[in-house]
Amino acid sequence: MDGGGEEEPEWQERALCAQTDPEAFFPEKGGSTREAKRICGGCDVRAECLDYALAHDERFGIWGGLSERERRRLRRGELGAVI
């Protein structure tokens, strides 16, 4: 997952998604997010990933176990504790 030319954060090297098919984390519109969320559920850097996505307003893909819609709801305070 690229932050737009910035140096990759250290936590990304330890992320489980870095060891799997990136296609799972960027499903087509209406596609399943189940596999990506399953992988995120076992990832040690899930919180860092979610923090990064929120701080950088990532609009696409699964980050920290949440879809773009779920991250938007989280920002608005509509989701309780998710991790």
Rank of each mutant, 00 (worst) to 15 (best):
E6M: 12
K29G: 01
G5E: 13
R75Q: 14
R69M: 06
G4L: 15
D44Q: 11
E78D: 13
V82S: 10
G65I: 07
K37S: 05
G64R: 07
S32N: 05
H56P: 00
A36F: 04
I62M: 11
R75H: 11
W11F: 15
R59E: 15
L79G: 07
G3T: 09
A55G: 09
R59A: 15
R59P: 01
R69W: 06
R38Q: 11
L54G: 00
T33Y: 02
T33V: 07
E68N: 08
D57G: 03
E13R: 15
A53P: 04
S67I: 09
R75A: 09
E70H: 05
D51K: 13
E58K: 15
E58V: 11
G30D: 03
C49Y: 06
W63I: 11
E48T: 02
E35Y: 13
P9V: 05
F60T: 11
E70W: 07
L16K: 14
A81V: 13
K29T: 04
F25N: 01
Q19V: 00
E78Y: 09
W63G: 13
R38H: 02
E28I: 09
F26D: 05
E7S: 10
G3P: 11
K29S: 07
D44H: 05
P9M: 11
L54P: 00
A47D: 14
C49H: 05
E35M: 03
F25W: 08
G30A: 03
P9G: 09
A24V: 02
D2T: 10
D57Q: 12
A55Q: 12
E23V: 09
D51L: 08
E6Y: 06
E78V: 07
F26V: 09
D21Q: 01
A18R: 12
H56V: 04
D2Y: 06
P22F: 03
C43N: 01
C49E: 02
L74I: 06
E35I: 12
V82E: 13
G77D: 09
M1E: 12
E35R: 14
G80L: 07
D21T: 01
H56R: 15
L50K: 02
T20H: 13
R34A: 10
D44N: 07
K29M: 02
G3K: 08
A36R: 05
R75K: 15
T33H: 01
A15G: 01
Y52H: 15
D51G: 06
E7W: 03
C49G: 04
K29F: 02
G4S: 15
C49P: 00
M1T: 15
V45G: 08
G61N: 12
G64Q: 07
E6G: 14
A36V: 05
A36Q: 06
W63V: 11
E35F: 13
S32L: 06
G64S: 08
F60S: 09
E6F: 11
F60I: 10
D2K: 12
L79Q: 10
R14I: 00
F26I: 08
L50I: 04
A15V: 03
K29Q: 07
A55D: 15
L79H: 06
G77I: 13
D44G: 02
I62E: 13
